[in-house]
């Protein structure tokens, strides 16, 4: 298993099949890559408005909805001013 082992208790960024971006602390996962995120927030990207963060709290994301899980570099993430970022939402996965 090319596992998520190293990501437990780290802040991660999760991209979902529909293009949504969720950040949170990886509390746990299983072999189907279902994950539990604590203190999670959705980051909503918009081309003419700043990034909006919507608190979600404790979240379970089903493995088959996941595109990618990345470890957040906390320093870099905190130094990024989300209110300056304008971007299209990520495209959804198309099979």
């Amino acid at each position: 298993m090319s596992s998520l082992q190293g990501y437990v208790d780290r802040r991660v960024l999760v991209i979902l099949q529909d293009g949504r971006v969720i950040i949170g602390m990886l509390a746990g996962y299983d072999q189907k890559s279902n994950v539990v995120l604590s203190d999670s927030k959705e980051r909503v990207y918009n081309t003419d408005e700043p990034v909006e963060e919507i608190p979600l709290g404790l979240y379970l994301v089903k493995g088959d909805q996941i595109v990618l899980i990345g470890e957040l570099d906390l320093e870099e993430d905190e130094s990024t001013d989300l209110s300056n970022i304008r971007a299209e939402p990520l495209p959804a996965i198309r099979y």
Binding site: S2, Y7, E71, L74
Partner: peptide, 27 residues
Amino acid sequence: NIRLDNIQVSDEARHPHMIAVKNCFIR
């Protein structure tokens, strides 16, 4: 499933979503 280190997303201006991500797990 793939684990990548030292990642770079092409066209970062258009996709700034992962600027602070250095390594990732891809389904």
